[in-house]
Design a protein around this nucleic acid. Structure first.
Lengths: 191, 191
DNA sequence: CCGGCAATCTTGTCATTGACAAGATGTAGT
DNA sequence: ACTACATCTTGTCAATGACAAGATTGCCGG
C-alpha cells in the first residue's frame, strides 16, 4: 500500500455515502471509513477535520449536485415548476446519502461558507422559477407549497413510508402525476 | 437521593426530548441523561434496554400523541382534511423532539410491535379522512399529496429552512393558508 | 410478621469511537 | 539538494454504549 492513497478524500466520501444510504448518518464512523479505505484511523481527519466536517462536505456536494440538476431543467424550460419538483425527488432517490444529510443541519457545520453558498445557489433556482410563474405577491406562498410537497414526498419515499402507495412505479414519475393533479390549471401557481 | 427515583422512565424521556429538540437526536447520550436525572450511568438502560430502545419509546409516544390530536380533529368534522394537516404541522412544532425521531426509522427499532401499532393507528386517521373526500380511485394519490405537503412543510419549518418565509406568523396557520390556496375548490381533494 | 422475590438502581469493566498531538513519509517548488 | 508543505501513521485520552454482577427497596404470600 502506497503511503499516499491517491484520492483519500473521495474514497472516504464515497464510503460514507454508501454507509449513510444503507444505514443512515448515525451509522458512520471515521475509523470505520478509514478501515474501508485501507488507511490509518486518523487519516480521514486530515481531510475533513472532524465528523461534522465530513458531513458538511457531503451536504455541500449534495447541494451542488442538486443545483446542477435543477439548472438543467431550467435551461430546458424555465416555466416548468413541476419539472423542478420531479428532479428534486429524483435527486433524493438517486443520491440518498447526500439527501439524508443535507436537511439535517444538526449534523454538520451549518455556517460553513461553502455550504451557505451552495445552499443559496439551490434556493435561487426555485425562487427564480416560482417568480416567473406566480405574481410577486403570491410567489412566497407558491414557493413554500412547491418545496414542501416535493420535500415531503422525497423524505417519506426515502424513509420507506410510501412503499405501499408507490408499488412498482417510478417514484419520481408518480410525483409528476401527483403534482399535475395538484397544480395544473391553477392561476396562482402552474401553467 | 432515594434509591428509587420515582419515575425515572419519564424523567429520562423528558430529558431526552429536551436535548433532541435543542440539538437533534445525535446529541443524546444515555450517560448524559442519567446525569441529568441524578442516577447512575447504567440506570436508563434498565428501562429502555439500549439507545435505540429509548428512541423507540419516543417514536411510540409521538405517534400516540399525533393520533390523539388527529382524532380530535376528526371528531369535530370528519371531512376537513386541511384541519388534519394543520394539526400535523402543529404537532411537529409543539413536539419537535418526538417529530425529529418519528420519521427516522434508522435510529430506532422499526419492528417493535407497539411502534407498528401506534403507526398504524395514525395512518388510519389520514386514510379514513381522505377516503371520505376522494373517490376510491383517487384516494391514494390524494393521501400522498396531503401527507407529503404537511410533512414537507413541517420538516422544513423545524429545520429552520422556512424562517425567512414564515417571519413572525404562526407556522401552522400559515400552512392553513397555503393548503387553502392549494386544495380548496378542487373536485379531487377538498370541499 | 417475615422470608423470598422481582423490580430498580449501583458499581465495575470492556471495546469502540472521536479528537488531538507528535512524528514519519512523500512531493513540489526553488 | 534543500526546504516547505501536504499527507499519512502512531500513540494517547476522555466519553460513550453495552454488559455483568451485586446492592437496595418494595411487595406479596404464607
Amino acid at each position: 500500500m502506497a503511503y499516499h492513497h491517491g484520492d483519500l478524500r473521495r474514497a472516504v466520501l464515497d464510503a460514507a455515502l454508501d454507509v449513510i444510504a444503507a444505514d443512515g448518518p448515525s451509522a458512520i464512523s471515521l475509523r470505520g471509513l478509514a478501515r474501508r479505505a485501507g488507511v490509518s484511523h486518523a487519516a480521514p481527519a486530515h481531510h475533513f477535520k472532524d465528523k461534522a466536517g465530513l458531513l458538511t462536505a457531503i451536504a455541500v456536494e449534495g447541494n451542488e449536485l442538486l443545483a446542477g440538476s435543477l439548472a438543467e431543467a431550467i435551461a430546458e424550460d424555465r416555466t416548468k415548476l413541476i419539472d423542478l419538483g420531479v428532479r428534486y425527488v429524483r435527486f433524493a432517490l438517486e443520491h440518498p446519502g447526500h439527501f439524508a444529510v443535507m436537511y439535517r443541519p444538526d449534523l454538520y457545520h451549518r455556517d460553513a461558507p461553502e455550504l451557505v453558498a451552495a445552499r443559496e445557489r439551490t434556493g435561487r433556482m426555485l425562487r427564480g422559477t416560482v417568480k416567473a410563474l406566480a405574481g410577486d405577491h403570491s410567489a412566497p406562498l407558491a414557493q413554500l407549497a412547491a418545496w414542501s410537497t416535493a420535500h415531503g414526498f422525497a423524505t417519506l419515499a426515502l424513509a420507506g413510508n410510501l412503499d405501499r402507495a408507490i408499488g412498482d412505479q417510478d417514484p419520481a414519475e408518480l410525483f409528476r402525476t401527483l403534482a399535475d393533479v395538484m397544480f395544473v390549471g391553477r392561476g396562482t401557481i402552474g401553467p
